[in-house]
């Protein structure tokens, strides 16, 4: 394709990205570096601040089962589960945003509908993990649309297996952030992830690979223009896709473990659909 077409594609995907994703990397980095004036995030660093911060997270109160009615047990028991439930609601909303973004990729909606479902099923958690990276630094992560900063130490202090959920994402994100992609690079990278022709069960791989190839060309050109001094950035970025698959596999296994061990946990129906028979 002509360079002008590839630039037009990059612009189109960047516009869709800005339209569907409310918290961009530019905004997140401004919040994290304290450049938003008085608008500083509420910091959650222990159980007390978590409970104070719940009003920001807009937690739905989940009923505590009979066998946990004793007051202090109830409090300790419910807090992690309640936080997990609010994470699920946000994740479901994020899946909707990613779906709208996917539909804006030229040619995506013309693919076989079953294949659109497969691409989203396998791609959406990878996309969400990439989108989480700009919200993170080595000390913690923004949540709740940037209204809250939750410390990494606090997440590590939660009871098992909740404490194991975020640490691999921090490790990935800290490394990923050193690539210094901006929002316009991210938009193309997300489209490349969605258009992976090797997802299990795809019916018609060829048109998906053709679409991905065009977006890959556009991404390669974008990185050359936007990061002229960053050698091998395109290759480094493509390597991240392998790491991502392992993180998603581990994440799904952890959720499956949670489902077995947390008798009162209910998985959001949309996330259940995505994770069922995934890996």
């Amino acid at each position: 394709p002509e360079a002008a077409d590839l630039r037009a594609l990059a612009r189109h995907l960047y516009e869709a990205y800005l339209k569907y994703f409310p918290l961009t990397k530019a905004k997140a980095r401004a919040i994290l570096s304290g450049k938003t004036g008085d608008n500083v995030p509420f910091v959650i660093h222990d159980m007390k601040s978590l409970m104070e911060g719940e009003q920001f997270i807009n937690c739905k109160q989940i009923p505590v089962p009979e066998h946990h009615q004793q007051q202090h047990i109830k409090l300790l028991y419910a807090v992690e589960l309640r936080f997990f439930q609010s994470c699920q609601s946000r994740s479901a909303e994020a899946v909707r945003e990613v779906t709208e973004f996917a539909k804006s990729i030229p040619g995506f909606v013309d693919l076989d509908l079953n294949d659109q479902v497969t691409l989203l099923k396998y791609g959406v958690i990878e996309v969400l993990i990439i989108m989480m990276s700009p919200l993170m630094n080595k000390d913690g992560t923004l949540i709740s649309y940037g209204q809250i900063f939750m410390t990494r130490e606090f997440l590590k202090s939660l009871r098992k297996p909740f404490c194991q959920m975020m640490e691999p994402k921090f490790e990935f994100s800290v490394k990923f952030n050193t690539l210094e992609l901006d929002d316009s690079d991210m938009a193309l990278f997300l489209a490349v992830i969605i258009l992976s022709g090797d997802r299990p069960g795809l019916l018609n791989v060829k048109p998906i690979e053709q679409l991905q190839e065009t977006v890959l060309h556009s991404l390669e050109l974008q990185l050359k223009l936007n990061h002229p001094d960053s050698l091998q950035l395109f290759a480094k970025l493509l390597q991240k896709m392998t790491d991502l698959r392992q993180i998603v596999t581990d994440h799904v296994h952890l959720i499956q473990l949670l489902k077995k061990t947390e008798i009162d946990m209910c998985l959001h129906p949309l996330l259940q659909e995505i994770m069922k028979d995934l890996y």
Partner: peptide, 21 residues
Amino acid sequence: LKEKHKILHQLLQNSTSPVDL
């Protein structure tokens, strides 16, 4: 596949109007 993924299918088929999640 569509049957097993009703919500995803619905999100794909609907326009940008938010689905009740």
